[in-house]
Nucleic acid binder design. Structure first.
Lengths: 219, 219
DNA sequence: CCCCTAAGTAAGAAATTTATGAATTAAATC
DNA sequence: GATTTAATTCATAAATTTCTTACTTAGGGG
């Protein structure tokens, strides 16, 4: 990152840096190629360290992948906690929640990619990690609260199951990122361009608000 | 499929059958493991033919993958054409369209998996195929028509861009299939169980209809 | 300043996986 | 029934990729 990694000869000793660099490179590599497509060789080359070090720190390609998985999934939690919706009225809270969810996926392509690959592998590794299971997510709690209050106050006309609604919000926010390449070819429109994504954001918020029947939202 | 493939020695000659079996097995293999995770060896073993045959018919693993991709994407078209919406009034047509889209993904897991993998590879291969590009899909035309008529007749209160709406319909229909494994671990609910999927279907239709503000839909 | 631990290097073994050359034989054609 | 075509087999080359054994050296604690 900071030191431009001396090509030949000796590499200065700094276990923390080396470990962190390997993790960083692993996230990119696994994100770009998936578990099977990833090459330990490329990872160590990207870091500029000897191939043996990867095994020194992570034992095997598989263990490295699992570490990367845990790393990125625990990382979300921190971001989620930054969102504070308690004080906002239901409609404003919901708009902010959808916007936040959208922005999260939009600005964390690595998360999107690694999650996709883990699903390709049928969750083989994520089921093994303890760190990921959380009986209730902050965002889920927030949704449940917002809906409750919205129904009570008459801000929302329709009732939805919180989990169904959350899956829907994520779906609308992330599907074009997950399937952008195939969709773009089929429709002849680049769903991954900044312009399309910006318009998608507006659509996402409007669509969800309309489905809740929050009067002021339009289009 | 029909003949239980003789284990040793001689395999009866039937190029079409062999080719079809290889394609079938390839779809499963690529779907289950992705391009890099797929093994030509497993494919030929599944068919029960000699490993050399795969190269005889498809030249390389890569060419086989591309053939599989084309196969499954052109297959959709046939299914899409079966949907006839022209005669239905806008609300009924939209409900049917959403239901159809949902059912398509629900009953074509192979398509879902292969599309996911192709997106993992950033659409590297789909851009090479001619067969997939279709300037306008039957379903897109249908949506445009339904929306037009719905607005005109006052059945729909909100206006949406047809492509945005279609992406949303697909998103709501397929996201739990694309990300079922990670979501299930995180939420402790099996999003891939028949029960959850059945409930998801109801939610999908209700949500879209409400977002269009088609009065009778509820929940 | 020495010693010891672990960070790092060099080189290549081991295992896996894709692909091919060349012979064999079943079926289609005339 | 001879001839031809290509479907199928056998054996193995070629390439790739993960991982290990053995060695070297930097740097901190006493």
């Amino acid at each position: 990152m900071d030191v431009p990694t001396v090509k030949t000869g000796t590499r200065s000793r700094d276990p923390e840096r080396t470990r962190a660099q390997l993790m960083e490179a692993a996230l990119t590599e696994f994100g770009d190629h998936g578990f099977h497509g990833a090459r330990v060789d490329r990872i160590t080359k990207a870091v500029g360290c000897n191939a043996r070090l990867l095994y020194h720190y992570f034992s095997s390609k598989e263990k490295l992948y699992i570490a990367a998985l845990e790393h990125i999934f625990t990382d979300i939690r921190a971001q989620e906690r930054q969102l504070e919706l308690e004080r906002l009225p239901p409609r404003a809270a919901m708009e902010r929640l959808v916007g936040f969810t959208f922005d999260f996926f939009d600005s964390n392509p690595l998360f999107v990619k690694i999650a996709r690959n883990e699903n390709l592998l049928e969750g083989r590794y994520i089921v093994q990690t303890e760190a990921v299971r959380a009986s209730s997510l902050p965002l889920m709690d927030a949704i449940t609260q917002i809906l409750e209050q919205g129904y009570r106050e008459g801000a929302f006309a329709h009732r939805y199951d919180p989990l169904q609604l959350y899956v829907t919000i994520v779906a609308i926010s992330a599907h074009h990122l997950n399937n952008g390449h195939t969709f773009s070819v089929i429709f002849g429109v680049d769903l991954l361009s900044p312009e399309w994504r910006a318009e998608r954001r507006r659509h996402a918020i409007a669509f969800v608000m309309n489905a809740l029947d929050a009067a002021p939202a339009q289009s």
